[in-house]
C-alpha cells in the first residue's frame, strides 16, 4: 500500500460482502477502513493491503500409485505475490506412492517457511484406497 491512495475491496468473511475502502491518513500514515459493518472487515482490509496471503492448492504427479496425481496444499497461507512461484515449485516435483494426508511434499516452498503437504491418500498400485 506504499503508493496507493485508496483501495477498494470486498470483504469475504461473511455472506454480507461489505464493500470496503482503505485509505491512508496523510498525517499519521494510519490505515483507515470504511464500509465495514463489523471489526472483522477492518482487520481483513488492513491485512489485504499490507500483507495479502493465500493458501495455494494444486496437484503433484505420483509414480506407481492408484491415481496419477495427488492433491496438495500449502500448510499455511503464503504471500499472494508468490503464488505463481510456488506453483512452479509444485509443478517441478514428483512423488512416489504411497502418499498419505499430511505427508510433506516440499519442506520450505520458495523460502516461505511454509511446507506443501498432501491432502489425499494415494495407495501404491495395485492396492486400492
Amino acid at each position: 500500500m506504499e503508493n496507493i491512495e485508496k483501495v477498494e475491496l470486498t470483504c469475504i468473511n461473511c455472506p454480507l460482502g461489505c464493500a470496503l475502502t482503505v485509505s491512508k491518513d496523510a498525517a499519521s500514515g494510519e490505515l483507515i477502513v470504511t464500509g465495514n459493518t463489523c471489526p472483522r472487515g477492518a482487520d481483513y482490509a488492513r491485512k489485504e493491503v499490507t500483507d495479502p496471503r493465500r493458501i495455494v492448492t494444486s496437484t503433484v504427479r505420483v509414480e506407481g500409485g492408484t491415481l496419477p496425481v495427488v492433491s496438495v496444499k500449502t500448510e499455511r497461507d503464503i504471500p499472494k505475490g508468490l503464488i505463481f512461484e510456488v506453483m512452479k515449485a509444485i509443478n517441478s516435483i514428483q512423488v512416489n506412492a504411497p502418499v498419505h494426508i499430511g505427508d510433506v511434499i516440499l519442506a520450505d516452498v520458495c523460502q516461505t517457511g511454509v511446507a506443501v503437504i498432501a491432502t489425499k491418500n494415494v495407495c501404491a498400485y495395485p492396492e486400492r484406497t
Binding site: 493458501i55 492448492t57 494444486s58 496437484t59 492433491s71 496444499k73 494426508i101 491432502t119 489425499k120 486400492r128 484406497t129
Partner: peptide, 28 residues
Amino acid sequence: HQLGGILNQCIHNGFGLHTFKEELTGPE
C-alpha cells in the same frame, strides 16, 4: 472406485469451517 464423491475433485480449501472449525480441502 473410491469413496468421497465429488469432494475428490474439489482440491481447493474452504470445506468444513462449520463442522471442524478449520478450512479443509475436499479430499481431506
